[in-house]
Design a binder for these strands. Sequence first.
DNA 1: CTGTTACTATACTGATTGGTATGATATGCG
DNA 2: CGCATATCATACCAATCAGTATAGTAACAG
Lengths: 194, 194
Amino acid sequence: MGRHREFDADEALHIALQVFRRRGYEGTSISDLTDAMGITRPSLYAAFGNKEDLFRRTLDLYERRHLCFAHEALQAPTAREAVERLLRGYVDVLTDPLSPPGCLGVNGAVACSEASEPIREELIARRIVNENNLRNRLEKARADGDLPANEDPADWARYVVSIGLGMAVKAASGASRQELHRVADFAMRSWPTA
Amino acid sequence: MGRHREFDADEALHIALQVFRRRGYEGTSISDLTDAMGITRPSLYAAFGNKEDLFRRTLDLYERRHLCFAHEALQAPTAREAVERLLRGYVDVLTDPLSPPGCLGVNGAVACSEASEPIREELIARRIVNENNLRNRLEKARADGDLPANEDPADWARYVVSIGLGMAVKAASGASRQELHRVADFAMRSWPTA
DNA sequence: CTGTTACTATACTGATTGGTATGATATGCG
DNA sequence: CGCATATCATACCAATCAGTATAGTAACAG
């Protein structure tokens, strides 16, 4: 069966997540990762493939461990509550005191070299999934009479996602949790009254 | 007096702006720049200093040539109009068909390696200036009775800037001008009614 | 115990990074 | 013209990039 791995792969992945979240995909070197994880380069490549593979695995872990609130938020009884829970939950993730500020999905890559385009596109694709999930929830709400018929679910989803992305950049720039909740307050003021 | 420069420094700077705006600060290599500008490395360093200096000069050019609408927007007769002009003007810059989508100030750097931290901090500092300019305008509006006394100018400025940053990321991800104007529509719905 | 297997450690690869030394070339001044 | 000066082109620098070859080591199967 061979020699056993001397490090905890799951723990190492959590550390990689922290490094990528702070420095972005291109801003993180393999040496940054191995130093933080306390393992050697061959161990990293043996356990996680190449840099792209590792980043995608950290993305999966991030969604599973930090963005899991979104799934529950969408199940709130009303659309308004679902949107508000999404925004509030995201603010708390963006300003988690135990992690670098901001969002892995935004800090990871906004603009990058041609070599990293696949990662940038992966992040865009995942954001589209999230926006579509919200849009579907709002379409259901409109069918149920929970959202006025003249409100466009696609427009609403795009707006909420835009607010989220803006708060993510703001968080990465040093905005406090309290400040971002104030932004969420203002965002909710757009919600239709009665 | 010596040999004359064989290229137009201002034109070269415009090209550098396009490259940085598309690839970000870290995603752009000196070779990317010299290839696009059609000059050699020593010419670039002689004319613009080092990479950081060049990027700061492209930032100045960008603000002067693309963000100049903001100054005029703030002089609109009402605060509401000023905010709306800021958002509309920014959307048009973000989706300028002659430039890479998004904003140099956001695409430039959101998260980066330690080596590029000075650039990231410079971008944050410039965003703070913009937010403060808007806040000052809104404080004046409140003093004039143009903005209700219970509306906080700092909160409003933070919200508007967040919307802008979110639209910038959205634009860099491929959102259309029309889609972003719909986001601006929703943002303006938060404005207090009478 | 031996053999096989999978890990770790060291050292290395070629390519690319930002930045420069050097020598040729072109310009203006006297 | 001839000198001074500034730009140009080539070729280079050390450092770092992502990724790997090789050899040593630890664990299980038999």
